[in-house]
């Protein structure tokens, strides 16, 4: 069984936000909710690195552990999904997640959170595949179509990889191997690393 993974190669990420917008446009995500975003460290200085972050679909997902209503669950392929009909918007998952993946609608009265939203690895939700309801609540279900998630598929520089962990890992290893010969770039001085391994 394939185990789904994201991996962002910081040597490649140029902070173009293609992934962020591919996700939003493809899944009709409202303004204010960011299932994926790009963070940059050392901006404007040597050592500047950018990284695209979304739900990491953790093996031991803390969000699932803390959810009081069992709205979060993990598929056999590792994708962590949410049942929006069960979610009560308490925000425990937000505290538990080390990546800030859970998103909540903004602007409600009394600061009420509303139902949580997060990256689905473009795998929709528990509703029937391709149903109107699934599309409305979660966006596309590209995994059921046999297609890769939009963010990685549209990545400008192929920095963001998504798919079977073994394949992703192999691609990344090949890249590291190739770069190893050089040692000329800033990147390699800062030690080549990728997030999400």
């Amino acid at each position: 069984m394939a185990r789904m993974r994201f991996l962002c190669d910081t040597e490649r990420c140029i902070n173009c936000n293609g992934c962020t917008v591919a996700c939003k446009d493809g899944n009709n995500i409202p303004v204010g909710i960011n299932r994926r975003r790009v963070v940059t460290i050392n901006e404007g200085r040597p050592g500047e690195q950018s990284l695209s972050i979304a739900c990491m679909h953790c093996s031991k997902a803390p969000c699932i552990a803390v959810c009081p209503v069992d709205a979060l669950f993990q598929r056999e392929d590792g994708i962590v999904l949410l049942d929006k009909k069960k979610c009560i918007g308490c925000g425990y998952c937000f505290f538990a997640c080390p990546f800030g993946a859970p998103q909540f609608p903004k602007g409600n009265v009394f600061g009420a959170r509303g139902v949580m939203d997060k990256c689905t690895f473009c795998a929709g939700g528990p509703e029937e595949d391709f149903s109107e309801e699934e599309r409305k609540l979660y966006g596309q279900n590209r995994i059921a179509e046999g297609k890769p998630p939009l963010c990685a598929a549209m990545c400008a520089t192929k920095a963001l990889l998504a798919g079977d962990a073994d394949v992703v890992s192999k691609i990344y290893q090949e890249r590291v191997f190739q770069r190893g010969s050089g040692g000329s770039s800033w990147g390699s001085k800062v030690s080549t690393r990728a997030y999400g391994r």
């Binding site: 394939a2 598929r75 056999e76 392929d77 059921a144 046999g146 890769p148 079977d164 394949v167």
Partner: peptide, 15 residues
Amino acid sequence: RLNPNMARRSFLKLA
């Protein structure tokens, strides 16, 4: 819902 073969093939494409 997920056909593992199908998924694997598509991710190989991406690879």
